[in-house]
């Protein structure tokens, strides 16, 4: 231990007498390295003493390991979904976890049964992430109606907004709900072609799902192949689906 570090530690321990304290303060004032050394040692002490922070870190570590045991897709909430990112994740979860079991165990069942059994619309909470401010009120109204499962009226509002991607995306979901798959495909294809927005991956995914709903297995395979060969979030789920469709 150097004289400096000894002096610093004695100061931190409260062991210095008045003369020693004076010497310490003078040294800290004139010597930058000494001052830095003091700051480091003081902060180390603070870190060791901060039991609350340590406890909180342990809680976070524990949480991390608890959730790591689940599938990453299980971490998406299923009861109160707040975004269509989550909605899509949740939807993919039920399709993969439940729907594929259904396919396997009941080959004669049509895919629309699977989807109708597991598909449920979620309440959007992050609808504004790609929206411009001036469309906010219209979207609010649209989502208000959407939350009431009034998809027809919601569509009217979404459609008045025009080709804004957020509105387009949710209009696609409305069309799914209304079983107007042709228009749903148009909406999602618009988003995919635009390719400069945040809904592309989800739209690709829903296009695949719509093909399943339409019993267009060949088209569904093409679509899920496209997803599985990309770096999409849904690539793994798409592969799972393909393994059952092939």
């Amino acid at each position: 231990m150097t004289d400096n570090s000894y002096l610093i530690e004695e100061f931190l321990d409260g062991s210095l007498k008045s003369k020693g304290i004076q010497l310490f303060l003078q040294q800290k004032e004139k010597d930058l390295r000494f001052a830095e050394e003091y700051a480091l040692r003081l902060e180390i002490n603070e870190a060791i003493q901060d039991r609350e922070l340590t406890e909180f870190r342990e809680m976070l570590d524990d949480q991390r390991s608890r959730f790591a045991k689940k599938s990453p897709y299980l971490t998406a909430r299923r009861e109160v979904l707040k975004s269509w990112h989550l909605a899509a994740a949740s939807f993919s979860l039920v399709v993969v976890a439940g729907g594929l079991w259904y396919i396997l165990s009941n080959q004669s069942s049509s895919t629309d049964k699977i989807v109708s059994k597991y598909y449920k619309p979620a309440s959007p909470g992050m609808q504004m992430r790609s929206a411009k401010i001036n469309t906010e009120e219209s979207l609010k109204e649209a989502f208000s109606l959407y939350r009431e499962n009034n998809f027809e009226s919601a569509l009217i509002y979404f459609n008045t907004i025009g080709n804004q991607v957020t509105a387009k995306f949710y209009s696609g979901i409305c069309y799914i709900e209304l079983k107007d798959y042709k228009k749903a495909i148009e909406s999602f294809e618009y988003i995919v072609e635009d390719n400069d927005n945040l809904f592309v991956e989800q739209s690709e995914w829903y296009l695949g799902i719509i093909h399943l709903m339409n019993k267009q297995t060949d088209e569904a395979i093409v679509q899920f192949n496209k997803i599985s060969n990309s770096d999409s979030y849904y690539a793994d789920q798409a592969k799972d689906i393909l393994s059952y469709l092939d």
């Binding site: 976070l60 949480q63 990453p72 971490t75 707040k82 990112h85 989550l86 994740a89 979030y233």
Partner: peptide
Amino acid sequence: DKNRKVLDFIYEDQYYRIRNFVT
């Protein structure tokens, strides 16, 4: 308050968004 239920809520509610961004 280091409420475990709230921590779990945040994780389940928000983690996917962060994962999406980082990845």
